[in-house]
């Protein structure tokens, strides 16, 4: 068991690298499978010093749910932004800055949240506060900045909290 842990310090990364290699080769054969797995073993061992405190994913079903929610929101975001760009006169738009106080602490979780905010409806993450306790978000068009903040906290941060913490 200990030997296995040393050989595969990061089993999920091993799996992901093998999979990505298959996609790069674009063809599943024993040859590419073996080489992908070889990369999947070597790369985590070599890069180990770069992730000293890596987070554990606690809740795998929640990861799937999160990905599905985000994909759905990306499609909605595209349509919403397209409508604003095409049909809303610029003077009628209310761009606004919103501060989102963060409950998430791990850098990885905050990174995922910031990326998600950028990809989803009418919001763009712009900056972190000096010690990482809040996130600065720009809204393309909003009547009520507080509602935007509450929705992001409820929809994404709550799920990320369950995944990472």
């Amino acid at each position: 068991m200990r030997l296995l842990r040393r050989l595969l310090p990061h089993p999920f990364l091993t799996l992901l690298l093998t999979l990505v290699w298959q996609l790069l080769v674009n063809d599943i054969s024993l040859n590419s499978l073996l080489f992908g797995f070889f990369l999947g073993i070597v790369i985590p061992v070599v890069t180990m010093p770069y992730w000293p405190n890596r987070p554990k994913l606690r809740n795998i079903p929640m990861v799937v749910e999160y990905i599905l929610v985000v994909l759905y929101d990306i499609v909605i975001a595209n349509i919403a932004v397209a409508r604003i760009v095409l049909f809303k006169p610029d003077a009628a738009r209310n761009p606004a800055w919103v501060r989102i106080p963060l409950e998430l602490r791990s850098p990885e979780a905050i990174t995922v949240l910031a990326g998600t905010i950028t990809m989803t409806p009418g919001t763009l993450s712009a900056d972190l506060s000096a010690k990482g306790h809040s996130l600065l978000v720009h809204c393309l068009d909003t009547e009520d900045p507080d509602a935007v903040r509450d929705e992001i906290k409820q929809r994404y941060e709550r799920r990320l909290k369950e995944i990472f913490e």
Binding site: R99, D127, L128, S129, A130, K131, G132, H133, S134, L136
Partner: peptide, 14 residues
Amino acid sequence: LPDAGEDGVWATHD
């Protein structure tokens, strides 16, 4: 910019 909360200032201005 809006108030940065407990940290006082946004990272870019820090």
